[in-house]
Computed example of a mutant assay.
Amino acid sequence: MELRHLRYFIAIAEAESFRRAAEKLHVSQSPLSRQMQQLEEEIGAELFEPSGRGVKLTPAGRLLLDRAKAILSGVDAAAKEVRETAEGQIGTVTIGFESGSAYVGPLSTILTRFRKQAPRVNVELVPMSSAQQWDALRAGQISIGYGNYVPDDASLESVVLARHRLGIVVPKQHPLATASTIKVKDLATEPMLMDPRKSNPRLYDDIIAAVRARGVTLNVASEILDGEALLTLVASGFGLTFGAEPAARFLDVGTAIWKPVSDLGLEMRNIAMWRPDAQSPLLRPLVDLVREFGAAPRDRERGLRGRESERQRRPRRGEVR
């Protein structure tokens, strides 16, 4: 049994005439009759019986009509879905991201634009370190990576989307919160709360190395995996932690603030990465948006810095300057 048998059968059943069905299908009546004979022989039942100058369905034919319509509808739907998948209209894009950087970085802006371009494409976000993202990209487990470090693999392409100074997060009641300038030496006696090294080993090591280069050994009081728990403990006075500059806006709602460390010399970068040999019609529009966004990140950073400086200069409620 072939799909054309079912299409011919439905046409005859709806027209109640071999002649009218042949005219509708733009085929001659004789081949159409032979196709129906073959179908009846294969099924082992008569599908039509004479009715006046035309034909009507037998009980077996009426049963087949319902099933044939369902089969062809399913085939048409499957073909449409396959075609839309091949064209990149539907599917799922999986993005690996560095925890703590997705919400306050440019990723949400890029995904907002992508959703407008491809409203039927699903997006999955999977937290993983930059190094884990490189492995996942090579294995085809994610479509795009969004991390803090440029991949050390020439087979992966990447673009820097943003750069942010790394500073410290302190409770608002802490003496450093009002200091005009903070240096690394000011952290020497402070208890520091850190993300576990395993969650972002390169950043952890970069911080330790940068501090040691200034002759200071950090007093790491605790390593805390959960970001909300970490900030809660900082705000409560249990220690200080490191954070990127965009955290300043996020922290406004709580009782901790972000402060720059003048001689720390570290930055947090938001980097998108992907496999250039694995670009499908589904992924290509997102990669194009990433390239566009990464074309002039310094311009955006200058604008962001300007808005942040203005925010810091703006008097707080009840404050006179």
Rank of each mutant, 00 (worst) to 15 (best):
P50Q: 05
H26T: 00
R19S: 04
L25V: 02
E42G: 13
R67Q: 02
S101T: 05
A15L: 08
L63E: 07
G96C: 05
G61I: 09
K69S: 08
R20T: 03
E41C: 11
L32P: 03
A60C: 11
L6Q: 05
I71D: 03
Q35N: 12
I10D: 04
S101C: 12
G44V: 07
E14G: 06
Q38R: 09
P59C: 14
A86N: 05
A102N: 05
A22I: 15
L111K: 11
L25M: 01
R19F: 03
R19C: 12
K56H: 11
E49I: 15
T94Q: 01
L32C: 06
I110A: 04
S108T: 14
Q37K: 12
L63T: 03
M36V: 03
F97R: 01
S99T: 12
A11G: 04
V55N: 09
R67C: 03
E40G: 13
E42I: 13
H5D: 12
T58M: 09
R62S: 12
Y8P: 04
A77V: 13
S108R: 02
S30H: 15
Q37S: 10
I71S: 08
R83E: 14
S73A: 06
L39A: 10
T92C: 10
E42P: 08
G44E: 10
L39R: 07
A78S: 02
Q37R: 11
S33C: 11
I90L: 07
L63P: 00
A22K: 06
E46Y: 09
T92I: 04
E84W: 02
Q89E: 07
S28Q: 09
F9P: 00
L72P: 03
L65I: 08
G100D: 06
E40Y: 09
E40P: 06
G54V: 10
E84V: 13
T109I: 10
T94Y: 02
R20V: 09
V93Q: 02
L111D: 02
A45V: 15
A15V: 13
Q29W: 08
H5I: 07
T58F: 08
I71K: 03
I71M: 05
T109W: 09
G52I: 13
Q89Y: 15
R34L: 14
L47A: 05
E49K: 14
E40C: 10
R7D: 05
R62Y: 06
A78K: 00
Q38K: 05
L47F: 06
A86K: 00
I43E: 01
D66P: 00
L65R: 01
E84M: 02
T85I: 14
E98S: 12
V27Y: 00
A21G: 04
Q89K: 10
L65N: 11
G52C: 10
R20K: 15
S108N: 14
T92V: 10
E14Y: 12
T94G: 02
E23K: 03
F97E: 09
Q29P: 12
A77M: 05
E46R: 14
D76Q: 14
D76R: 15
E23R: 12
L63K: 03
R53V: 10
Y8F: 08
T92N: 07
L32W: 06
A78H: 01
M36R: 01
R67V: 02
L63A: 06
S30N: 02
V82A: 00
A77P: 07
F48P: 02
A79Q: 08
A68Q: 08
P106L: 08
S17C: 07
L32E: 10
T94P: 02
G61W: 01
L32D: 01
T58Q: 04
